[in-house]
Design a binder for these strands. Sequence first.
DNA 1: ACTAAAATCGTCCAAATCGTCCATCTGTCC
DNA 2: GGACAGATGGACGATTTGGACGATTTTAGT
Lengths: 297, 297
Amino acid sequence: MSLFTPKQVAQAIGVSESSLKRWCDRGLIATVKTPGGHRKMTAAGVATFLRERQQPLVRPELLGLPSNAGKSRRVLDRAAEQFHQALAAGDEEVCRQVLVDLFLSEHRLARVFDTVVAPAYQQLGQRWQCRELEVFEERRAVQIGLRILGEIHRLLADPETDAPLALGGTWEGDFYQLPTNLAELTLRESGWRATNLGSSLPFATLEAAMTEHCPRLFWLSVSFVADDDKFVETCSGFLEKAEKLGVVVAMGGRELTEPLRQRLRAVSWCDGFQDLEALAAKLSSGNEPESAKGGDG
Amino acid sequence: MSLFTPKQVAQAIGVSESSLKRWCDRGLIATVKTPGGHRKMTAAGVATFLRERQQPLVRPELLGLPSNAGKSRRVLDRAAEQFHQALAAGDEEVCRQVLVDLFLSEHRLARVFDTVVAPAYQQLGQRWQCRELEVFEERRAVQIGLRILGEIHRLLADPETDAPLALGGTWEGDFYQLPTNLAELTLRESGWRATNLGSSLPFATLEAAMTEHCPRLFWLSVSFVADDDKFVETCSGFLEKAEKLGVVVAMGGRELTEPLRQRLRAVSWCDGFQDLEALAAKLSSGNEPESAKGGDG
DNA sequence: ACTAAAATCGTCCAAATCGTCCATCTGTCC
DNA sequence: GGACAGATGGACGATTTGGACGATTTTAGT
């Protein structure tokens, strides 16, 4: 992680150094001070400020951000189409600009994911099925997406050490990485200590992770199910275990068909990341650390 | 107990060595001096200083870790061990620092990949087979690796538009993403316009990509082979096509056993990324843009 | 034990930042 | 319009920082 001086940040935002110093002293921007009293800021801290204040970035490159980030406000629906086109063309720079712009424009990530990212990849999937796109183009789009999400990951402030814990991933055979990554970021933005365990994990492993860390929330992203019966069976055992531990399980994904859902109980369904965010908010507001763990035995 | 040098502590705190020395001399940080006058600090001393000054550590993980500056062999060895430990523990910050430090120390990426990254993941794989690690810990390590590689990707300058083109990926059923990502970065550092097409791609798609873009080099990362015969058969067709187009195919990966290799021709074998880099150098030095495309039809 | 390379020493100085003050600008209320 | 409160951007000397230098100490390798 690199630290930025007031001069750099002031130039990046396009304001005078004096103003920037005042904002720091008023607590608007997270600032650390050297023993000598010099201020230093992190990219995440500045990004948080920019989002809260809707402040445009004049020279984003000074903060290591894409060269056009934050210069203009973006509208969600227009961005969706632009993002989709850029993804299909493999234009990583444009993709990055669109997403980082939206992020800095204080749009909730969950909303961006639901209205821009997810639809774009759905469209790509459709175009791939129609033979309009080659497989590698779809894979390349995923690569690009993962890279950009990684950057946004770094722009989010580190969660508090006492923030509620969330784990999640995808089940064995489900190699889709984007949805579970999106879930992780959604929860991180909501202040959770969310960790994506990865894709294609045996349920035994998921259980082990849950038992070891005992999170408040566990998300399961389901984009592929080979065998409904096996899935339901294994998953049911997992859910039982979760209930005993007092872990809330959230499931979402395009493969969760209605018949499949009816065969699973004790699950919070999330159709989209805004659902997940709402669930997380409910959980962390109505914090009941004692009673939740009660039924162990 | 381990003692830290000013350089390490300075990096951990995120200030210059000069400033740190000054703070030591002012008594802000408890310091022990060797008979020769070199300063040494204990973790406790640094922690006390940080708490009194309420200064957050920029890189807390570096405390306890040797510095990675320099280019000697042992630096790389130590880095390999650090990286491995941090990967197993899921400590993304440490991993990032180790790799980015090495990168900024002007180590060739190929060398870092061969001596640090690849061994670390090999060890993880072994420990996983010995049941020492859970699957999710291995997956998490991959997630971390991919994110960091994404960052290094951005740190590399964009390739020239007239740089030689390279494409690559993994075959259907081979979901390992790290090796092919490493290959992409290796070539990018060598100035190539390298694009990773992704993992688990049908050979038909790989062929389509090759035909459409006609790269100078095509890498195939092979970390998993379900059926040797089928692999050889399909792969041979691919290699023929490549030869017609004048595309050099480079293959590497732990699953390329000797018997498998003998059944495949017209391939440049790469045991490690330094091999790949050497191959790339040879190709781009002996540049023969005309004759290469000759035999089409 | 000895040599060569790497890291640290102490010192110096230019550049950056500090805190503070003040003139200017903007929007509001009377 | 005019008084007022609040925010901005620039200027000032004092302080802090970060990088450079040759000399010295530590470390790696034989």
